[in-house]
Amino acid sequence: MSGISSDSIWLDRGRCRTGSPNKVFCMHTHRPVNLALTKFSFPLAAIASITHRVTGVALFVGVAALLYLLDIALASDEGFAAAQSLLAQPLIKLVFIAILAALTFHIVAGVKHLLLDFHIGDSVGAAKIGAQISIVVTIVIVAAAGVWLW
């Protein structure tokens, strides 16, 4: 085991020749996995990438809030007023701006992603600049929106 992570790699029975109980340990069919996250270095592009994922999952939840606000605002005059007073509450306003911030980054990084899919800007150097641009653009848009909405 020297030099190899002690993490077990479990496979379904049947995928392995040695058939002990339910699952069997079979190192020889897989390459070792060693995720020492604290020891890795994370370039900006990696941070932007995971942030795109985090904002995607945040939006999965945030969509509920947006649908709710739009639902009541469209339903009746009282609902429209209720949506306005909800958004006037500091905590709710903050959450709303956070959802918009997640959406902004997800779109900016998403558009960058689409460009990369067409091999535009996917060299190592461009990736760094691309990550920098997407972070700066997001900050500028969110700051402007934050000042405007607050």
Binding site: R53, G56, V57, L59, F60, V63
Partner: peptide
């Protein structure tokens, strides 16, 4: 949104 989020959440 539903298709996009399903594929995304599936990937995650």
């Amino acid at each position: 949104t539903v298709a996009h989020a399903w594929i995304g959440m599936w990937t995650v």
